[in-house]
Amino acid sequence: TFYNFIMGFQNDNTPFGILAEHVSEDKAFPRLEERHQVIRAYVMSNYTDHQLIETTNRAISLYMANL
């Protein structure tokens, strides 16, 4: 899942690491979701930090390219 992918960046001092920290603390994050459209919609609806949203979009693109 995307959640498992992004958790691989925990403790990294990178934008993906920052995203992983936010996702791990977000109890409502769709952890079992595999459809990138649902993940993107969730982030757009629940996150207000523009940098975090952009990082999510980049992470989703990388995740999709590696499926």
Score class of each variant (00 low, 15 high):
residue 62 L to D: 06
residue 45 S to Y: 09
residue 20 A to P: 01
residue 63 Y to K: 01
residue 1 T to N: 09
residue 12 D to G: 07
residue 66 N to W: 15
residue 27 K to F: 08
residue 25 E to T: 14
residue 63 Y to Q: 05
residue 55 T to E: 05
residue 33 E to D: 06
residue 43 V to H: 02
residue 33 E to Y: 03
residue 19 L to C: 02
residue 9 F to I: 03
residue 24 S to R: 14
residue 66 N to S: 15
residue 52 L to E: 01
residue 44 M to N: 10
residue 35 R to V: 05
residue 43 V to W: 02
residue 7 M to F: 03
residue 55 T to S: 08
residue 17 G to W: 04
residue 51 Q to I: 13
residue 31 R to F: 07
residue 14 T to P: 03
residue 48 T to H: 12
residue 22 H to M: 08
residue 38 V to P: 04
residue 64 M to E: 11
residue 25 E to A: 14
residue 48 T to E: 09
residue 57 N to G: 07
residue 59 A to W: 04
residue 18 I to A: 13
residue 23 V to T: 02
residue 42 Y to C: 02
residue 28 A to K: 11
residue 33 E to A: 07
residue 17 G to H: 05
residue 42 Y to H: 04
residue 35 R to M: 07
residue 59 A to G: 03
residue 6 I to T: 00
residue 46 N to K: 08
residue 65 A to T: 10
residue 11 N to L: 07
residue 12 D to R: 09
residue 52 L to I: 10
residue 65 A to Y: 10
residue 48 T to F: 10
residue 2 F to V: 03
residue 64 M to I: 15
residue 47 Y to E: 00
residue 50 H to V: 14
residue 9 F to C: 04
residue 48 T to Q: 11
residue 33 E to F: 03
residue 29 F to D: 02
residue 12 D to P: 07
residue 51 Q to D: 14
residue 46 N to W: 06
residue 22 H to E: 04
residue 27 K to T: 11
residue 32 L to C: 12
residue 17 G to C: 04
residue 60 I to A: 04
residue 34 E to H: 15
residue 52 L to N: 01
residue 27 K to Q: 11
residue 46 N to H: 13
residue 57 N to R: 09
residue 61 S to A: 14
residue 2 F to M: 02
residue 44 M to L: 12
residue 59 A to S: 03
residue 27 K to E: 12
residue 65 A to N: 11
residue 27 K to L: 12
residue 66 N to H: 14
residue 24 S to L: 14
residue 4 N to R: 07
residue 37 Q to C: 11
residue 22 H to Y: 14
residue 24 S to M: 14
residue 8 G to M: 14
residue 56 T to G: 06
residue 38 V to C: 11
residue 53 I to P: 00
residue 27 K to M: 12
residue 29 F to R: 04
residue 32 L to G: 12
residue 64 M to C: 09
residue 56 T to P: 02
residue 40 R to W: 15
residue 36 H to P: 15
residue 60 I to K: 00
residue 16 F to P: 03
residue 9 F to M: 06
residue 7 M to Y: 03
residue 56 T to L: 14
residue 4 N to W: 07
residue 32 L to M: 13
residue 15 P to W: 09
residue 4 N to A: 13
residue 14 T to G: 15
residue 25 E to W: 09
residue 8 G to T: 14
residue 37 Q to G: 09
residue 53 I to C: 06
residue 14 T to H: 07
residue 33 E to H: 03
residue 39 I to W: 02
residue 31 R to E: 04
residue 34 E to F: 15
residue 62 L to Q: 08
residue 19 L to V: 05
residue 59 A to D: 01
residue 42 Y to V: 04
residue 10 Q to H: 13
residue 16 F to C: 06
residue 22 H to N: 05
residue 35 R to D: 15
residue 15 P to Q: 11
residue 36 H to M: 12
residue 8 G to P: 04
residue 53 I to W: 10
residue 54 E to T: 07
residue 45 S to P: 01
residue 67 L to F: 09
residue 13 N to T: 09
residue 33 E to M: 06
residue 61 S to P: 05
residue 16 F to N: 01
residue 48 T to W: 08
residue 34 E to A: 14
residue 22 H to Q: 07
residue 54 E to A: 10
residue 25 E to Y: 11
residue 38 V to M: 09
residue 2 F to T: 01
residue 8 G to K: 14
residue 22 H to F: 14
residue 58 R to Q: 15
residue 67 L to M: 14
residue 37 Q to M: 08
residue 53 I to K: 07
residue 24 S to F: 13
residue 41 A to S: 09
residue 50 H to W: 11
residue 64 M to Q: 10
residue 61 S to L: 14
residue 12 D to V: 08
residue 63 Y to F: 12
residue 53 I to F: 05
residue 67 L to P: 09
residue 20 A to F: 07
residue 6 I to V: 08
residue 6 I to W: 03
residue 41 A to T: 09
residue 7 M to H: 01
residue 36 H to W: 14
residue 27 K to H: 10
residue 42 Y to R: 00
residue 10 Q to I: 15
residue 44 M to Q: 11
residue 27 K to Y: 08
residue 15 P to F: 07
residue 48 T to D: 09
residue 4 N to D: 15
residue 52 L to V: 05
residue 34 E to K: 15
residue 48 T to K: 13
residue 66 N to Q: 14
residue 50 H to Y: 12
residue 10 Q to W: 12
residue 9 F to D: 00
residue 32 L to T: 13
residue 26 D to W: 03
residue 21 E to H: 15
residue 56 T to E: 01
residue 28 A to F: 14
residue 65 A to K: 12
residue 35 R to C: 12
residue 27 K to N: 10
residue 8 G to C: 10
residue 18 I to E: 10
residue 23 V to C: 05
residue 40 R to Q: 12
residue 18 I to Q: 13
residue 18 I to L: 13
residue 32 L to K: 11
residue 31 R to D: 03
residue 19 L to E: 01
residue 28 A to R: 10
residue 62 L to Y: 08
residue 28 A to L: 13
residue 58 R to L: 15
residue 64 M to G: 05
residue 56 T to Y: 13
residue 60 I to H: 02
residue 9 F to T: 00
residue 8 G to D: 08
residue 39 I to Q: 00
residue 5 F to S: 00
residue 49 D to T: 06
residue 17 G to I: 04
residue 9 F to L: 04
residue 50 H to C: 10
residue 42 Y to E: 01
residue 61 S to W: 09
residue 57 N to P: 01
residue 11 N to E: 06
residue 47 Y to A: 02
residue 9 F to V: 03
residue 43 V to I: 12
residue 15 P to E: 14
residue 40 R to Y: 12
residue 14 T to A: 04
residue 55 T to I: 13
residue 3 Y to N: 00
residue 48 T to A: 10
residue 64 M to D: 05
residue 47 Y to C: 06
residue 44 M to Y: 13
residue 27 K to I: 11
residue 49 D to N: 09
residue 16 F to W: 05
residue 39 I to F: 04
residue 58 R to A: 13
residue 47 Y to M: 04
residue 1 T to W: 06
residue 10 Q to Y: 14
residue 18 I to W: 12
residue 3 Y to F: 10
residue 40 R to S: 09
residue 43 V to F: 07
residue 27 K to C: 08
residue 46 N to I: 06
residue 35 R to A: 09
residue 57 N to V: 11
residue 41 A to G: 07
residue 39 I to V: 09
residue 47 Y to H: 02
residue 6 I to C: 02
residue 16 F to R: 00
residue 36 H to T: 15
residue 53 I to A: 05
residue 5 F to N: 00
residue 41 A to F: 08
residue 17 G to E: 03
residue 20 A to V: 05
residue 38 V to F: 08
residue 67 L to D: 08
residue 15 P to Y: 08
residue 25 E to F: 11
residue 37 Q to I: 07
residue 39 I to D: 00
residue 54 E to Q: 08
residue 62 L to K: 07
residue 57 N to D: 13
residue 62 L to W: 07
residue 58 R to D: 12
residue 23 V to E: 01
residue 12 D to F: 10
residue 44 M to E: 13
residue 63 Y to I: 06
residue 25 E to V: 10
residue 29 F to G: 05
residue 6 I to R: 01
residue 23 V to Q: 03
residue 34 E to D: 13
residue 37 Q to H: 14
residue 10 Q to L: 15
residue 32 L to S: 12
residue 6 I to E: 02
residue 62 L to T: 05
residue 67 L to Q: 14
residue 9 F to Y: 10
residue 5 F to H: 00
residue 2 F to K: 01
residue 60 I to G: 00
residue 53 I to T: 05
residue 44 M to C: 08
residue 13 N to D: 14
residue 19 L to R: 01
residue 65 A to R: 09
residue 4 N to E: 14
residue 26 D to A: 04
residue 34 E to C: 13
residue 24 S to E: 08
residue 18 I to H: 11
residue 28 A to P: 03
residue 63 Y to A: 03
residue 51 Q to K: 14
residue 61 S to D: 15
residue 55 T to V: 10
residue 20 A to H: 03
residue 11 N to H: 13
residue 49 D to F: 08
residue 28 A to W: 13
residue 29 F to A: 01
residue 31 R to A: 06
residue 57 N to Y: 11
residue 22 H to R: 12
residue 38 V to R: 06
residue 11 N to T: 06
residue 3 Y to D: 00
residue 39 I to K: 01
residue 39 I to C: 02
residue 13 N to F: 07
residue 48 T to R: 11
residue 51 Q to C: 09
residue 25 E to K: 15
residue 16 F to T: 01
residue 56 T to C: 13
